[in-house]
Each structure stands twice: as C-alpha cells, then as structure tokens.
Design a protein around this nucleic acid. Structure first.
Length: 849
RNA sequence: GGGCAGGUGGCGUAACUGGCAGCCGCGCCAGACUUAGGAUCUGGUUCCGAGAGGAGUGAGGGUUCGAGUCCCUCCCUGCCCACCA
C-alpha cells in the first residue's frame, strides 16, 4: 500500500490506536520468555484535562513498557484513578454537582485524552479508588492494622478554622487565617485516627541503603524526613520543687556550658513551676502562643520570644542553677519539649541569649586550640564588656563544631565524641537520664472531616464502648459504603463532618449488642488509596483479598516507577510502609515496592514560569495533539531534555520535531517503490555497505540510550541517522535498494517507542503485517558497527596537532609510525626526543617531549 | 541553617568508565529551487584573528602525558526540607 505523499498525523493515529486495542497488543501475559517487567506511573487524580506534566510522566513509562515488551518481557503497564479527594468535593460545595458524578465525567474525559496519546496501557487492569470494590480493601487493611496495633486514636493538635468550623490543612492557612473564609485559624486538640508508621522508622531508614536505583535526592529527603537523631536525655531537677525537667540533646558534651533551660509553651510543667512573680507574664505568653496556629508560630523569620518562669533548674553534672524560660521556638512534639541552652555552642541559643542578656559560657574549643586560652569566661551576651574570646565562633557568635572540652569538670580535655559517650554512660548510671534516639517522623494522622473518601469502618456504641474508643465493623459487613447524599444539604463546607449529617447512614446498630450506635463520620486520607494500588492492578476484580497473592508473587515488585519528586516524603514513604505491612499480613512477597524510581522534571511554560492559568502560559496537550499529532508531542517532550530535568516549553523546538517526522516520511515515501520490497543476497559493499553501517550503528546507539534513560540522545541519534540517509541521495541496484529498505525498516523500529503511530505507518508501507509492538526488538550486527579505518587524534604534549586515519587492526607501533609521518606532528615535535608515548587504543596517541 | 540538583555556544542540550569539547535540535547567516517564501533542500555557525594560530566548559588552586569529568577552596542559580535541640 503506497504511502501518502504527505505526513498527516490526524489520518493515522486513530487507526493505530484502534488496531492496538482490537488486537489486545498491550494486554498483560501476551509474551514473556525473558520474565516480567512491571512499569508503573503514579496514578493521576482525574482532573478534567491532562497537562504536560502528565504527558511527560506517562511517556517515560510508556517508552520502557514498549521497549521491554519488544525485548520479550511480559509487561505490566496499568493506569487508574486516584479518584477520591478534595477538588471534587470543593467543586460540589460550590456548584452542587455530586463528587461521584463529577469524578465519573472527569475520568471519562481524562481517559479519552490519554488514549489520543497512544500510551500502551492494558485497560483491563484499570482501578478506580472511589469504587467500593477498591475502598473496601482500605477498610479491610484498617481493621487488620487495628488488630496489629498499627492504627490508634489519639488527640492531636490541628489547624481549626473558627469560621468554617472544620480542620484545614497546613497549606490552607495563610498568615494565620483561613484561605477560604479569612477567619482566624487556631490550634485545637481533636481526636483523630493515626497509623503507627513510627514503628517502622528504623526499618524504613535502614532499607534506604538497599534502594540503589532511587534518585539520591529522594533517598536524602526520606532520610531527612525520618530524622533519626542520637543523643541523650538528661534530668534537670527544679529547685524547690518535686518536678524535674527532662531535656533531649545531641550535644551533651556542651552541658557544662548550659546557662538556661527552655520549655515549649505547652510543656506539662510550665504551670507548676512558674513563680508568683512571673505568673502573669508567663500566662499571657502561653495564651498568646496558644492563640496562634502551629504554622504561624513556627513560621520562617518568626522572632524568638520567651519569658522567664522564675524557676531554676539544676544541672545534673555540676549542680549549677540555671533559669528556666518558656519560648516559642521550642516544639512540644519533638524530643521532650524541653531544651538545655548552650549559647556558646548553638546559634539559636546564642541569639536568644543575646536578646535577653543571658550568660554565655564556652566549654568546647576547636581541636588544636590551646586550652585555657579562652574557656570558662562568663559574660553577658551582647552586653558591654562581654569580651570573651570564643575561639572558632562562627558569624552567629557560637562555635557549633565538635572540639575539645574545657571547664567541664572531669571531662575537660576529652574530645566531644569521647565526652558524649562518657557523659551518656554517667547519666544512665546515676539514673538521671540515658542515651536515646529521637525521630522527626511522626505518626500519620489520616482521618479527614470530608465526604469524598473511604469511610472509616468504626462504630461508637454508648453501651459497649463508653470511652468512645470505637468498635471495628466486622469484616463481613465490608464495604462500609458511602451513602448517596443530597449535595446541597450535606456538602456545605461547614460544621460537622458531612457524613455526620446523613442520619440514615450515621445511625446504625452496634455490631456487639445490636443496640443503637453511630458510625465514625470521618473518612480516610487519600494517601491511603495510593499505598497499595500498584498491587491491586494485578487483579483489579479479585474479591478474596486486596489482590491475588499468586499474581503478587509473579509480578511484584514494580520494576520501574515514574512520578514527580514532590512525593518524596509523603506517598513514597507511606507506600513503603504499607508494603512492609502487606508482607507481614502474608500478602506481598516483597519488602520494598519499587526497584527503580524515576522522578521527572517539570514542564514549564514558554516564559520559564510554571504553567498556570494565572500566567496564561499553559500549553494544553490536546491542542498540540490536534495540530501536530501525538507523535510530535511525544517526540518533542522526550527530546527536550533528560527526564529528571525541568524544561521550558518551546514551540519552535517542537516544530523542529514535527519537521523531522516530515523529513522521515518524505524519505520513506521517496524510496518506497524501489526499496520496500527489494531483496539482495550477495555481499554488500560501497554505498550499500555504508547504508547498512549507518542503520546498525543507529540501532546500537538507540538501544543503549534507552537502557540508560537517555531518550533525548536516542532521538538525536535517530536524527543523525536520517541525515545520513538523506546524504545518500540516489540508490540504484539491488544491493543499495535492499540496504535502504532494511535501513528504513530499522528506522521505523527505533522510532516506535517514541512515535509509535508514525513508526507503524512507515513499517506497514515497508511490508510489516502486524504492529511493530508485537514483533521483537531487533539486534544489531556487531560486524556492521565498526569501521575498517578509524581516526586517531594525535597530541603532542597534550595538545591536539593532527588527526590520522589508521586501519582498525593497526598495532601501537604502526599507529605511532603513521602519526610521526604526519607533517604537522613533525613540526610540533621539532626533532626533540620523545620521552614518553601514550597510546589509547582506537582513540588517540600523545607524544611527551 | 540542612539536603539535593545544576552552572558548557545566542538558546535547549551532548560528551558511556579521565582521552579530539560542543553530537542533535532551535535560532541565525549564505546558497539552491521558486512569481514568492515564514515550504523544502544544501552548506556554514564557540570566541578572538584576514591568516597561520591562539583562547575556551562559574572562579582559583591541585593530581595527571592528558581534566567539562577526579581532589581541595570558593562563587552563583534552582528545587525540597527546616527554630528538630
């Protein structure tokens, strides 16, 4: 079938999409002599329209899925919908459309758009997290984890909007007020459900070392986020009181320099130890802090503020009495909520001391500094005459490095590291503290006062459960379905959680006594949904468990996972945690969900700013597909730069890719009549051999580039190949025609992962009878990728002086002789004796004179 | 403050393990074909220099026959985290 003269993407893309679908080209289990590959992209929240970030994300996975399939792997490549979540619910509050309705519509249009880009998904594996057949397993996991003690109910401090009367996320708090209604936001203690993810902190941290194919930045972010910190806890007695203050510090070696102690405003003992004289001031301060939200209080640049309690704490090491303060910068939920302050050796303590005129006492000197030169000076920070010489102090005024101790009783002269060890042991022996480990990571609070999410399968019965701990819904009653609702009445954005307003749903019977009971009206965080969807894809309709364990054994873990780096510490940590739990439940065969993680960069607008309606710089994938076709969109997004890096959209550069496809089309159409069916069985030489060499070199280059995730250079290689074929101009005779036919068939093959519709159309004109995706990835002929005569660079004293052509098989001596014969080289050598001759096979030689 | 990524032509980028810096594309310049070109094809395009030649990968040092690549000291940009004791 002769090709059309002109490349018209609109005429061919639908054809191939339909053909793949009707033939089931991308269905799981089609082939797999080499085993399996699971290629996964982070599932999208189905907003109505795709943006370029989606296109790029799915493309990176798609190239691998297609490549591995042709390499002979049984490829899992699914797509689904993270369908619960805030946007649909907020939209409903605004316009009254039921979230389920809107979500269905959005999924339909998003899916239709995905299909226009030619992604190779197996749609039989599609998953929708808002479907009861999916979220029932969230509930099942919840109950299992409740049994294991991994789910618990706690009181927690949340951002409470005084206008909307609901909990809002940190992101919704702007300058201490609600983003939506501009009312004041305060902290409120509220009950919430939490996962005990901290039980896995150590395991999740240790296993990071095994994630060799994850980007460093993600590993670093997780390590940071988990925040393991080794230190000691030490008890400071309160003078004239039975209370003690336990502090946590990583720098116990500086404890002889402690000149005051600071408590968080909501620390347990504040009230008890405050003296009469200071009572009014402390209470005013604590009230002021409580009125602020957590984000506001700890906002960047927030001035350090504090107030003296009037109490004195006793340093366990030297019995020194130091004042106890309350200050805004101490966090109640990290460490013990109390810190010992050592202004000489901590920048923050120094700032605070300076502001309030507290003493600074140096007890650590840089190693090598002479002891006695500076130590032990008591001085009021910032006060006139405070001329203490704090050797090594940084700009902020504190010397924060390790060093050698001075003025530290029996520990003087020890290094910081030695002192930490000895002092920790002493504390333990004296029962005044102990070495300990503190974590930044907190448990994961997952209950939300929202409608559009997974109902938490708990009921409250006053008779059986007077303490309101919650009774689990029996497994056989799952799923607890979301009730249908009258949108205007229930989704008001105000008051109680929406589900609490649905009397017919919230009122139920107690599973234990059969009496009246109420359902938990809160729903689960949508991050729960994305914790295990990758396993559900394997058997989306399985009814006996979250997924079929047999298929889990066969296809897990995910081999390649593609998504945005913004998920570094939330989703990517949560689903690692969940995977551990699934293994303990006997479901999952793996400890870690993903072998190789790829985080794609952002596609910015042409102006270099993030694409946004606000800037009017959004490039809609649909408009590009319509005008240039999916293949151009795909080709350009891959060609624009390496996957991890951000890039700015550039219309001109994209048109360059469009032009390139036209060029290929013209080339193929030009040679079609003479070359598509040409055969030749003799030896190739001359121009025909050159054509074959170009083809096999391109094949090698593209194959290797795909393997190392360098799609942009793969495409550059293909462009070079096409330029070379253009340079051939005329082909005549059976050998050249057969060589050209082969070259164009190879060209189609190397293009197919990037521009699949286009490649298939060309291949079909050149005799392919089935989609290329159903054929195998071609192997290059090793004999054709090396030349007989190769160039050598000739350097004299490291400077390039000439380039010589030498037979591939030439020995070192032969190459040297050829180099020395070159007149430019002779001139550079100038008859001087050669001290050394460097020979790098197949690359260069260097004369050292 | 911490972490990570990056700094190479006018621009996006390339250079796999130390071995000819700038592949490919965009833009620009010239030519061909054209009534015409914002189509297409061909050639050129790091800088200085007419030329031979010289300089050149953020700055400065070092290792090496040889450094964009390795080591040390800095500077700048972007992203993420952050009063974490």
């Amino acid at each position: 079938m002769p090709m059309q003269e002109k490349y018209e993407p609109q005429a061919i893309e639908k054809k191939w999409q339909d053909r793949w679908e009707s033939r089931g080209t991308f269905r799981l289990g089609r082939s797999g002599p080499k085993g399996k590959k699971y290629v996964l992209e982070m599932l999208p929240y189905p907003s109505g329209k795709m943006h370029m970030g989606h296109v790029r994300n799915y493309l990176l996975g798609d190239v691998y899925a297609r490549y591995f399939r042709m390499q002979g792997f049984d490829v899992v490549h699914p797509m689904g919908w993270d369908a619960f979540g805030l946007p649909a619910e907020n939209a409903a509050i605004k316009d009254g459309v039921h979230p389920a309705t809107r979500t269905q519509e959005n999924i339909a249009s998003f899916k239709a758009e995905l299909k226009t880009l030619g992604y190779s998904y197996d749609w039989d594996l599609e998953v929708n997290t808002s479907d009861p057949s999916y979220y029932r397993w969230n509930q099942w996991f919840f109950l299992k984890m409740l049994e294991k003690g991994l789910v618990y109910r706690r009181f927690s401090r949340v951002n409470w909007c005084t206008g909307c009367l609901t909990v809002i996320a940190n992101e919704q708090v702007k300058d201490g007020t609600c983003e939506r209604c501009e009312s004041k936001v305060v902290d409120k203690e509220m009950p919430e459900w939490a996962f005990r993810i901290t039980r896995y902190s150590q395991v999740l941290l240790d296993a990071l070392d095994g994630l060799k194919e994850w980007p460093d930045r993600i590993i670093a972010a997780q390590r940071n986020w988990i925040g393991r910190s080794e230190g000691v806890e030490a008890d400071f007695a309160i003078e004239g009181s039975t209370e003690t203050i336990r502090v946590f510090t990583t720098r116990v070696d500086t404890i002889f320099g402690c000149t005051y102690v600071v408590l968080a405003p909501d620390h347990r003992v504040v009230r008890a130890i405050t003296t009469k004289e200071q009572k009014a001031a402390v209470e005013a301060f604590v009230a002021k802090m409580a009125a602020k939200s957590k984000t506001e209080r700890t906002e960047e640049g927030a001035e350090k503020e504090g107030v003296f309690t009037g109490a004195y704490a006793v340093n366990p090491f030297n019995g020194e009495k130091v004042p106890v303060w309350v200050a805004n910068f101490v966090l109640s939920d990290y460490g013990t909520g109390a810190v010992m302050s050592v202004p000489a050796h901590d920048a923050r303590d120094y700032d605070f001391a300076k502001k309030y005129g507290l003493p600074v006492k140096t007890v650590v000197l840089p190693a090598g500094a002479r002891a006695g030169a500076a130590g032990g000076t008591h001085a009021r920070a910032g006060a006139a005459g405070g001329t203490e010489a704090r050797a090594g102090a940084n700009e902020s005024g504190a010397y924060t490095e390790d060093g050698v101790l001075v003025e530290s009783g029996p520990y003087s002269g020890k290094t910081s590291a030695e002192a930490r060890k000895a002092m920790g042991a002493w504390l333990e022996q004296q029962k005044k503290g102990a070495p300990t480990v503190t974590w930044r990571q907190k448990d994961w609070g997952f209950s939300r006062q929202r409608y559009w999410g997974t109902p938490i399968p708990i009921v409250y019965c006053e008779k059986c459960d007077p303490e309101r701990k919650g009774l689990p819904v029996p497994y056989e009653q799952l799923p607890v379905r979301l009730p249908d609702i009258e949108v205007e009445k229930v989704l008001t954005g105000k008051g109680e959680p929406p589900l609490a307003k649905v009397a017919s749903w919230v009122n139920t019977t107690c599973p234990r006594c059969g009496g009246p009971a109420r359902r938990e009206a809160e729903t689960m965080d949508t991050f729960v949904d994305s914790c295990w969807y990758y396993a559900r894809y394997l058997s989306p309709k399985f009814e006996k468990a979250p997924f079929d364990p047999e298929l889990g054994k066969k296809y897990l873990p995910v081999d390649i996972y593609v998504g945005g780096p913004e998920h570094a510490t939330m989703h990517l940590l949560y689903f690692r945690f969940w995977t551990r739990v699934m293994k303990e439940l006997g479901l999952s065969p793996v400890d870690e969900p993903v072998v190789r993680l790829i985080t794609q960069g952002i596609v910015n607008g042409p102006d270099g700013r993030k694409m946004s309606k606000r800037w009017g710089n959004v490039v809609a994938p649909s408009s590009i597909v319509q005008k240039y076709g999916a293949d151009t969109a795909r080709g350009y997004v891959l060609f624009a730069g390496p996957p991890e890096r951000d890039f700015d959209w550039n219309d001109k550069a994209m048109e360059g890719v469009f032009r390139f496809l036209h060029r290929v089309w013209t080339l193929a159409a030009t040679h079609e009549a003479a070359c598509a069916g040409a055969t030749y069985s003799g030896a190739y030489e001359g121009k025909a051999l050159e054509i074959r060499r170009h083809a096999h070199k391109a094949l090698k280059r593209v194959t290797e580039a795909i393997e190392r995730l360098s799609f942009n250079t793969a495409i550059a290689g293909i462009m070079e190949f096409v330029n070379a074929l253009y340079a051939v101009k005329e082909v005549s005779g059976a050998a050249e025609q057969a060589a050209m036919g082969e070259a164009i068939r190879i060209l189609a093959r190397v293009l197919v992962t990037f521009t699949p519709h286009f490649a298939n159309e060309v291949a079909e004109a050149y005799g392919a009878t089935e989609p290329l995706e159903e054929s195998s990835w071609p192997a290059f002929d090793p004999a054709l990728v090396v030349d007989d005569v190769i160039p050598y660079a000739v350097q004299v004293l490291g400077k390039l002086r000439a380039e010589i052509m030498v037979p591939l098989a030439a020995t070192e001596a032969e190459v040297r002789a050829a180099a020395e014969a070159d007149p430019k080289v002779q001139l550079a050598l100038g008859g001087k004796p050669v001290k050394k001759f460097v020979f790098v096979p197949k690359r260069l030689v260097n004369f050292v004179v």
